[in-house]
Nucleic acid binder design. Structure first.
Lengths: 238, 238
DNA sequence: CAGTGGTCTAGACCACGCA
DNA sequence: GCGTGGTCTAGACCACTGA
């Protein structure tokens, strides 16, 4: 692990254990450089990491200060960027099941081609899948993925975990995505599978996932039961 | 403007004008350093900026490459982090109006105290405000702000723009926030003011805004008409 | 093993905050 | 004007990729 990350971890621990307290000014970079027997540039890189993680802020000409809400973030490992999470209102131990409703290969429609940057002749997997937690359905997925990018999807994979398959079998990792979130009325299919009334809203999430290379690999529209799912977004200034 | 930002802008322009094309490998850092008559560290900082902006990715031992979807991002000025946006399904020229429904000062309840990190005796502004675009109501805000942090809010300010007042009059800028998004059924108040039926869902956004210092300054719950608002989230790996 | 990016240093100068 | 963070350099060494 590079030195600047190690130093960042140590300073994070000091925040956690109240060696540095909320609102407090840190020692200046020169002093920290001496303490950690390193150069000032390396200290700055460590502080930059902590800033991106939302633990402190820096004012040129003045110093670095611990944020008021730093303790909320300092618990987990240092993580730059944003946490984007889907929270289900059910305990963690509950059983998670999938039920595949449709699974085919076909050609993409216009919207799918545009979002996935593929042409008319590029075959895609298409599946509809119901996700069930503790015996209760909570979301209905409509997913499209180019066949040539994500090889070997089977109904068996869909019954287990697509992301696990992609990560562990194909060795592909992706985190970049673009999501649009809406409230909408349930479709007829939603009403059947999500066991919801015509008056129950659904949370609709339209999502495109990208590889590191910027290649789109998945386009999906997911409908969530309104009483079981909410989405959390944390936005940090960088 | 620092040199590394200038270089980043130039490279971005080269991507925009197809001097460097999608999927292409960039010249190595040493070569770029010579071209821009600078050190390799500065080139790396420029590339880091472009990586954070989602225009390219880097593989240690191999090189830097333009992302497949770089052109989508390269249009706007370089912006690290995420775009989080609220999109209204109405053209930009439309008239924007506010209607204040409630405006008082009071003490915070338990949830508000927890989110705003204040105690029982700290007075807060509370207002309910309807937002109207082109004569049509599209969202209903419930907002709480500590009085000592955001001084001088008046009904006049609420009728104009709160954020503009805070930015221009108080000189406070904030972008850090934490949002929870849900679909929910409309309340009685929603039905009246948003002009929606009992069967029309609303998009509920619960939001806490923070100052640079990590001090929470605003806690709000906003209900949006489902057919006029959607939220966009772009998540980049850093 | 050659090419390339990631890290690190010591020192310099500049820009900004603050008294 | 002093203290502080931001930028920049030239060179070094290490870690990784890929032929």
């Amino acid at each position: 692990m590079p030195k600047y990350k190690e130093i960042a971890e140590i300073i994070k621990e000091r925040i956690n254990t109240h060696v540095y307290t909320v609102d407090e000014k840190l020692p200046d970079q020169q002093t920290l450089a001496k303490e950690f027997a390193t150069s000032r540039v390396t200290i700055k890189k460590a502080l930059d990491l902590l800033r991106a993680a939302g633990l402190l802020y820096t004012i040129q000409g003045s110093g670095s200060y611990i944020k008021r809400n730093a303790l909320m973030k300092a618990q987990t490992s240092i993580q730059i960027g944003h946490n984007v999470g889907l929270t289900t209102a059910v305990q963690k131990e509950a059983q998670l099941d999938n039920k595949v409703i449709t699974f085919t290969v076909r050609f993409p429609d216009e919207k799918e081609r545009r979002h996935l940057l593929i042409d008319r002749e590029t075959p895609v997997y298409f599946y509809q899948r119901l996700r069930i937690i503790g015996g209760k359905p909570y979301s209905l997925e409509n997913t499209v993925m180019p066949v040539h990018l994500i090889k070997g999807i089977t109904e068996e994979v869909l019954n287990d975990s697509v992301y696990r398959y992609i990560r562990e079998e194909l060795g592909i990792i992706f985190k970049d995505n673009r999501q649009i979130v809406r409230a909408s009325k349930p479709t007829a299919l939603d009403q059947v599978h999500l066991d919801c009334k015509e008056t129950d809203p659904v949370l609709e999430v339209e999502k495109i996932m990208y590889l590191t290379t910027g290649t789109p690999v998945e386009y999906s529209i997911v409908h969530h039961r309104y009483d079981m799912v909410e989405m959390l977004f944390e936005n940090q200034d960088h």
